[in-house]
Protein backbone atom coordinates (compact mmCIF):
# COMPACT_ATOMS: atom_id res chain seq x y z
CA UNK A 1 0.00 0.00 0.00
CA UNK A 2 1.18 3.46 -0.71
CA UNK A 3 0.17 7.05 -0.64
CA UNK A 4 -2.10 6.53 -3.57
CA UNK A 5 -3.78 3.31 -2.60
CA UNK A 6 -5.44 2.24 -5.78
CA UNK A 7 -9.11 1.48 -5.55
CA UNK A 8 -9.13 -0.54 -8.73
CA UNK A 9 -5.92 -2.46 -8.34
CA UNK A 10 -6.71 -6.13 -7.91
CA UNK A 11 -6.22 -7.09 -4.30
CA UNK A 12 -6.36 -10.74 -3.51
CA UNK A 13 -7.34 -9.91 0.06
CA UNK A 14 -10.46 -8.21 -1.21
CA UNK A 15 -11.94 -11.28 -2.81
CA UNK A 16 -11.17 -13.44 0.17
CA UNK A 17 -12.69 -10.76 2.36
CA UNK A 18 -15.94 -10.86 0.47
CA UNK A 19 -16.60 -14.33 1.72
CA UNK A 20 -16.12 -13.31 5.28
CA UNK A 21 -18.38 -11.72 7.81
CA UNK A 22 -19.35 -12.12 11.40
CA UNK A 23 -22.40 -14.21 12.17
CA UNK A 24 -25.64 -12.43 11.62
CA UNK A 25 -27.72 -13.50 14.59
CA UNK A 26 -28.75 -11.21 17.48
CA UNK A 27 -27.00 -7.89 17.94
CA UNK A 28 -29.91 -5.80 16.68
CA UNK A 29 -28.39 -2.39 17.30
CA UNK A 30 -25.24 -3.37 15.42
CA UNK A 31 -27.18 -4.67 12.44
CA UNK A 32 -29.30 -1.56 12.48
CA UNK A 33 -26.32 0.75 12.44
CA UNK A 34 -24.88 -1.14 9.49
CA UNK A 35 -28.02 -0.72 7.42
CA UNK A 36 -28.26 2.95 8.34
CA UNK A 37 -24.63 3.54 7.36
CA UNK A 38 -25.07 1.92 3.95
CA UNK A 39 -28.34 3.69 3.30
CA UNK A 40 -26.84 7.02 4.38
CA UNK A 41 -23.98 6.61 1.97
CA UNK A 42 -26.28 5.76 -0.91
CA UNK A 43 -28.43 8.80 -0.11
CA UNK A 44 -25.43 11.13 -0.07
CA UNK A 45 -24.15 9.69 -3.31
CA UNK A 46 -27.50 10.01 -5.02
CA UNK A 47 -27.93 13.51 -3.66
CA UNK A 48 -24.52 14.50 -5.06
CA UNK A 49 -25.37 13.36 -8.56
CA UNK A 50 -28.89 14.72 -8.30
CA UNK A 51 -27.67 18.17 -7.19
CA UNK A 52 -25.15 18.48 -9.96
CA UNK A 53 -27.71 17.42 -12.57
CA UNK A 54 -30.43 19.60 -11.06
CA UNK A 55 -28.23 22.67 -10.96
CA UNK A 56 -27.12 22.13 -14.54
CA UNK A 57 -30.64 22.05 -16.03
CA UNK A 58 -30.97 25.80 -16.71
CA UNK A 59 -27.53 25.65 -18.27
CA UNK A 60 -28.51 22.81 -20.62
CA UNK A 61 -31.65 24.70 -21.56
CA UNK A 62 -29.64 27.78 -22.46
CA UNK A 63 -26.67 26.08 -24.10
CA UNK A 64 -28.34 23.05 -25.64
CA UNK A 65 -26.22 20.77 -27.77
CA UNK A 66 -24.18 23.83 -28.64
CA UNK A 67 -22.38 23.17 -25.35
CA UNK A 68 -20.45 20.42 -27.12
CA UNK A 69 -20.11 22.05 -30.52
CA UNK A 70 -19.96 25.80 -29.88
CA UNK A 71 -16.53 27.29 -30.28
CA UNK A 72 -16.99 30.46 -28.27
CA UNK A 73 -16.99 30.45 -24.51
CA UNK A 74 -17.96 33.68 -22.85
CA UNK A 75 -20.22 33.36 -19.85
CA UNK A 76 -20.91 37.05 -19.49
CA UNK A 77 -21.92 37.34 -23.12
CA UNK A 78 -24.13 34.28 -22.89
CA UNK A 79 -21.92 32.25 -25.22
CA UNK A 80 -21.82 28.74 -23.85
CA UNK A 81 -19.82 26.80 -26.45
CA UNK A 82 -17.67 24.54 -24.28
CA UNK A 83 -15.65 23.02 -27.11
CA UNK A 84 -12.63 25.16 -26.16
CA UNK A 85 -12.79 23.73 -22.63
CA UNK A 86 -13.28 20.18 -23.83
CA UNK A 87 -10.42 20.37 -26.32
CA UNK A 88 -8.11 21.90 -23.73
CA UNK A 89 -9.06 19.31 -21.12
CA UNK A 90 -8.46 16.40 -23.46
CA UNK A 91 -5.25 17.78 -24.94
CA UNK A 92 -3.62 18.67 -21.61
CA UNK A 93 -4.61 15.27 -20.24
CA UNK A 94 -3.31 13.47 -23.30
CA UNK A 95 -0.05 15.39 -23.13
CA UNK A 96 0.27 14.67 -19.42
CA UNK A 97 -0.26 10.95 -19.94
CA UNK A 98 2.20 10.88 -22.85
CA UNK A 99 4.86 12.12 -20.45
CA UNK A 100 3.67 10.49 -17.26
CA UNK A 101 2.96 6.94 -18.47
CA UNK A 102 6.41 6.02 -19.79
CA UNK A 103 8.29 7.99 -17.15
CA UNK A 104 6.11 6.76 -14.30
CA UNK A 105 6.22 3.11 -15.34
CA UNK A 106 9.91 3.27 -16.23
CA UNK A 107 10.76 4.85 -12.91
CA UNK A 108 8.73 2.23 -11.05
CA UNK A 109 10.62 -0.55 -12.86
CA UNK A 110 13.89 1.16 -12.03
CA UNK A 111 12.86 1.54 -8.39
CA UNK A 112 12.10 -2.15 -8.03
CA UNK A 113 14.66 -3.79 -10.30
CA UNK A 114 17.58 -1.40 -10.50
CA UNK A 115 17.93 0.69 -7.36
CA UNK A 116 20.00 -1.18 -4.76
CA UNK A 117 17.97 -2.49 -1.80
CA UNK A 118 19.31 -0.10 0.75
CA UNK A 119 18.46 2.92 -1.40
CA UNK A 120 14.99 1.73 -2.35
CA UNK A 121 13.16 3.18 0.65
CA UNK A 122 14.84 6.53 0.19
CA UNK A 123 14.14 6.65 -3.53
CA UNK A 124 10.48 5.72 -3.22
CA UNK A 125 10.00 8.15 -0.34
CA UNK A 126 11.34 10.90 -2.58
CA UNK A 127 8.93 9.94 -5.34
CA UNK A 128 6.05 9.96 -2.88
CA UNK A 129 7.16 13.36 -1.66
CA UNK A 130 6.31 14.58 -5.13
CA UNK A 131 2.82 13.13 -4.70
CA UNK A 132 2.00 15.00 -1.52
CA UNK A 133 2.85 18.49 -2.75
CA UNK A 134 -0.53 20.28 -2.93
CA UNK A 135 -1.76 21.21 -6.37
CA UNK A 136 -1.86 24.93 -5.63
CA UNK A 137 1.91 24.79 -5.12
CA UNK A 138 2.43 23.04 -8.44
CA UNK A 139 0.47 25.83 -10.04
CA UNK A 140 2.60 28.51 -8.44
CA UNK A 141 5.81 26.70 -9.31
CA UNK A 142 4.67 26.13 -12.88
CA UNK A 143 3.87 29.79 -13.31
CA UNK A 144 6.94 31.26 -11.64
CA UNK A 145 9.63 28.74 -12.57
CA UNK A 146 8.50 26.71 -15.56
CA UNK A 147 6.73 29.39 -17.57
CA UNK A 148 9.87 31.47 -18.26
CA UNK A 149 11.77 28.31 -19.21
CA UNK A 150 8.99 27.39 -21.62
CA UNK A 151 8.77 30.90 -23.00
CA UNK A 152 12.43 31.61 -23.58
CA UNK A 153 13.90 28.16 -24.18
CA UNK A 154 11.58 25.23 -24.80
CA UNK A 155 8.96 26.78 -27.04
CA UNK A 156 11.34 28.71 -29.35
CA UNK A 157 13.50 25.60 -29.60
CA UNK A 158 10.50 23.45 -30.50
CA UNK A 159 9.50 25.92 -33.18
CA UNK A 160 12.99 26.07 -34.60
CA UNK A 161 13.56 22.34 -34.75
CA UNK A 162 10.14 21.61 -36.23
CA UNK A 163 10.28 24.51 -38.65
CA UNK A 164 7.12 25.92 -37.22
CA UNK A 165 4.90 22.97 -38.03
CA UNK A 166 1.67 22.20 -36.21
CA UNK A 167 1.20 21.71 -33.25
CA UNK A 168 4.16 23.95 -32.53
CA UNK A 169 2.73 26.98 -34.30
CA UNK A 170 1.57 30.28 -32.88
CA UNK A 171 3.31 32.78 -30.67
CA UNK A 172 5.13 31.25 -27.72
CA UNK A 173 3.67 32.69 -24.54
CA UNK A 174 5.02 30.33 -21.96
CA UNK A 175 1.64 29.52 -20.55
CA UNK A 176 -0.90 27.37 -22.33
CA UNK A 177 -1.50 23.76 -23.20
CA UNK A 178 2.12 22.64 -23.29
CA UNK A 179 2.90 24.09 -19.86
CA UNK A 180 -0.38 22.71 -18.52
CA UNK A 181 0.51 19.26 -19.84
CA UNK A 182 3.95 19.39 -18.26
CA UNK A 183 2.60 20.51 -14.88
CA UNK A 184 -0.10 17.83 -15.01
CA UNK A 185 2.50 15.23 -15.95
CA UNK A 186 4.56 16.22 -12.92
CA UNK A 187 1.51 15.63 -10.74
CA UNK A 188 0.59 12.34 -12.42
CA UNK A 189 4.02 10.71 -12.49
CA UNK A 190 4.20 9.98 -8.75
CA UNK A 191 0.71 8.42 -8.86
CA UNK A 192 1.70 6.13 -11.72
CA UNK A 193 5.04 5.32 -10.12
CA UNK A 194 3.74 4.64 -6.62
CA UNK A 195 1.01 2.24 -7.71
CA UNK A 196 3.05 0.53 -10.44
CA UNK A 197 5.87 0.02 -7.97
CA UNK A 198 3.51 -1.74 -5.58
CA UNK A 199 2.41 -3.95 -8.45
CA UNK A 200 5.94 -4.75 -9.66
CA UNK A 201 7.07 -5.49 -6.14
CA UNK A 202 4.75 -8.45 -5.77
CA UNK A 203 5.76 -10.15 -9.02
CA UNK A 204 6.89 -13.57 -7.80
CA UNK A 205 10.64 -14.04 -7.86
CA UNK A 206 9.92 -17.44 -9.37
CA UNK A 207 8.68 -15.88 -12.59
CA UNK A 208 11.77 -13.76 -12.99
CA UNK A 209 14.09 -16.67 -12.28
CA UNK A 210 12.06 -18.82 -14.66
CA UNK A 211 12.74 -16.38 -17.47
CA UNK A 212 16.39 -15.99 -16.51
CA UNK A 213 16.83 -19.75 -16.52
CA UNK A 214 15.58 -19.85 -20.11
CA UNK A 215 18.32 -17.50 -21.22
CA UNK A 216 16.44 -14.20 -21.08
CA UNK A 217 18.41 -11.02 -20.56
CA UNK A 218 17.38 -8.75 -17.69
CA UNK A 219 15.74 -6.38 -20.13
CA UNK A 220 13.74 -9.22 -21.66
CA UNK A 221 12.61 -10.32 -18.22
CA UNK A 222 11.11 -6.90 -17.59
CA UNK A 223 9.66 -6.39 -21.05
CA UNK A 224 8.25 -9.82 -21.72
CA UNK A 225 7.49 -11.24 -18.30
CA UNK A 226 7.19 -8.56 -15.62
CA UNK A 227 5.34 -5.90 -17.60
CA UNK A 228 2.81 -8.25 -19.24
CA UNK A 229 1.97 -9.97 -15.98
CA UNK A 230 1.41 -6.57 -14.34
CA UNK A 231 -0.70 -5.03 -17.03
CA UNK A 232 -3.93 -4.86 -15.04
CA UNK A 233 -2.22 -3.19 -12.10
CA UNK A 234 -0.41 -0.75 -14.36
CA UNK A 235 -3.65 -0.01 -16.16
CA UNK A 236 -5.26 0.77 -12.80
CA UNK A 237 -2.42 3.14 -12.01
CA UNK A 238 -2.79 4.88 -15.36
CA UNK A 239 -6.54 5.16 -14.90
CA UNK A 240 -6.20 6.84 -11.53
CA UNK A 241 -3.64 9.26 -12.96
CA UNK A 242 -5.85 9.92 -15.97
CA UNK A 243 -8.79 10.72 -13.72
CA UNK A 244 -6.63 13.03 -11.66
CA UNK A 245 -5.43 14.80 -14.80
CA UNK A 246 -8.93 15.24 -16.18
CA UNK A 247 -10.19 16.71 -12.94
CA UNK A 248 -7.17 18.75 -11.88
CA UNK A 249 -8.26 22.28 -11.23
CA UNK A 250 -6.22 24.69 -9.20
CA UNK A 251 -2.76 24.10 -10.66
CA UNK A 252 -4.13 24.61 -14.15
CA UNK A 253 -5.76 27.94 -13.31
CA UNK A 254 -2.20 29.26 -12.84
CA UNK A 255 -0.58 27.95 -15.98
CA UNK A 256 -3.17 27.75 -18.75
CA UNK A 257 -3.71 31.43 -19.38
CA UNK A 258 -7.42 31.78 -20.05
CA UNK A 259 -9.93 30.92 -22.65
CA UNK A 260 -12.30 32.09 -25.29
CA UNK A 261 -11.72 30.02 -28.41
CA UNK A 262 -10.62 26.55 -29.34
CA UNK A 263 -6.83 26.26 -28.90
CA UNK A 264 -4.96 26.03 -32.18
CA UNK A 265 -1.58 24.80 -31.07
CA UNK A 266 0.34 23.61 -28.03
CA UNK A 267 1.24 27.21 -27.27
CA UNK A 268 -2.38 28.39 -27.17
CA UNK A 269 -3.85 29.55 -23.90
CA UNK A 270 -6.91 27.76 -22.63
CA UNK A 271 -8.90 26.54 -19.67
CA UNK A 272 -10.06 23.04 -18.82
CA UNK A 273 -13.57 22.14 -17.77
CA UNK A 274 -12.42 21.90 -14.18
CA UNK A 275 -10.16 24.94 -14.07
CA UNK A 276 -12.80 27.13 -15.69
CA UNK A 277 -15.23 26.21 -12.90
CA UNK A 278 -12.75 27.48 -10.32
CA UNK A 279 -11.97 30.68 -12.19
CA UNK A 280 -15.44 31.58 -13.38
CA UNK A 281 -17.96 30.46 -10.76
CA UNK A 282 -19.86 33.49 -9.58
CA UNK A 283 -18.70 35.68 -12.45
CA UNK A 284 -21.36 34.84 -14.99
CA UNK A 285 -24.52 35.20 -12.96
CA UNK A 286 -26.94 32.41 -12.12
CA UNK A 287 -27.10 31.15 -15.69
CA UNK A 288 -23.32 31.17 -16.04
CA UNK A 289 -23.01 29.19 -12.82
CA UNK A 290 -25.50 26.67 -14.10
CA UNK A 291 -23.51 26.24 -17.30
CA UNK A 292 -20.47 25.53 -15.12
CA UNK A 293 -22.48 22.75 -13.50
CA UNK A 294 -23.01 21.37 -17.02
CA UNK A 295 -19.24 21.37 -17.37
CA UNK A 296 -18.89 19.54 -14.02
CA UNK A 297 -21.47 16.98 -15.11
CA UNK A 298 -19.67 16.30 -18.39
CA UNK A 299 -16.44 15.95 -16.45
CA UNK A 300 -18.02 13.47 -14.04
CA UNK A 301 -19.36 11.43 -16.95
CA UNK A 302 -15.96 11.36 -18.68
CA UNK A 303 -14.11 10.35 -15.50
CA UNK A 304 -16.78 7.76 -14.73
CA UNK A 305 -16.53 6.36 -18.24
CA UNK A 306 -12.75 6.10 -18.05
CA UNK A 307 -13.03 4.26 -14.75
CA UNK A 308 -15.72 1.96 -16.07
CA UNK A 309 -13.73 1.07 -19.19
CA UNK A 310 -10.59 0.37 -17.25
CA UNK A 311 -12.49 -1.82 -14.79
CA UNK A 312 -14.07 -3.77 -17.61
CA UNK A 313 -10.70 -4.40 -19.22
CA UNK A 314 -9.20 -5.41 -15.90
CA UNK A 315 -12.07 -7.75 -15.10
CA UNK A 316 -11.92 -9.33 -18.52
CA UNK A 317 -8.22 -9.96 -18.42
CA UNK A 318 -8.47 -11.31 -14.88
CA UNK A 319 -11.09 -13.74 -16.04
CA UNK A 320 -8.81 -14.81 -18.83
CA UNK A 321 -5.61 -15.13 -16.89
CA UNK A 322 -6.54 -16.32 -13.45
Amino acid sequence: MSITESPVAPKSGMTVGRERKLSTHSDTLYRGLIIVALAFFVLVGVYYFYSIIDQSIPGWKAAGFGFFTGTTWNLNAGQFGALPLIVTTLSTTLLAMLFAAPIGIGAALALVYLVPRRLQLLASSLVELLAIVPSVIYGAWGFIVLRPIMLYHVEPWLQRTTHNTWPFTGVPSGEGILLGGVVLATMCVPIVTAISRDVFEVVPRDLIEGAISLGATRGQVLRRVVLPSCRTGVLAALTLALGRALGETIALTFVLGGVSTVPKSLFSAGATMASEIASALGNGGALGDSVLFCSALVLIVIVGLVNYLSRTIIRRSQRKFQ
Binding site: V8, A37, F41, A296, I300, G304
Partner: peptide
Protein backbone atom coordinates in the same frame (compact mmCIF):
# COMPACT_ATOMS: atom_id res chain seq x y z
CA UNK B 1 -17.65 -1.97 9.19
CA UNK B 2 -20.92 -2.03 7.30
CA UNK B 3 -19.16 -3.09 4.11
CA UNK B 4 -17.21 -5.74 5.97
CA UNK B 5 -20.37 -7.21 7.43
CA UNK B 6 -22.68 -7.11 4.44
CA UNK B 7 -22.49 -8.94 1.18
CA UNK B 8 -25.72 -7.95 -0.47
CA UNK B 9 -26.36 -5.87 -3.55
CA UNK B 10 -26.55 -2.66 -1.56
CA UNK B 11 -23.08 -3.23 -0.12
CA UNK B 12 -21.64 -3.94 -3.54
CA UNK B 13 -23.13 -0.74 -4.89
CA UNK B 14 -21.76 1.27 -1.97
CA UNK B 15 -18.31 -0.25 -2.31
CA UNK B 16 -18.18 0.57 -6.01
CA UNK B 17 -19.56 4.02 -5.25
CA UNK B 18 -16.72 4.68 -2.84
CA UNK B 19 -14.18 3.62 -5.42
CA UNK B 20 -15.82 5.94 -7.92
CA UNK B 21 -15.67 8.80 -5.42
CA UNK B 22 -11.94 8.28 -4.93
CA UNK B 23 -11.42 9.16 -8.57
CA UNK B 24 -13.98 11.97 -8.89
CA UNK B 25 -12.64 15.48 -9.51
CA UNK B 26 -12.41 17.38 -6.21
CA UNK B 27 -13.90 20.49 -7.75
CA UNK B 28 -17.24 18.72 -8.23
Amino acid sequence: VALFETRNRLARIVEQGIEIFVGMPAIT
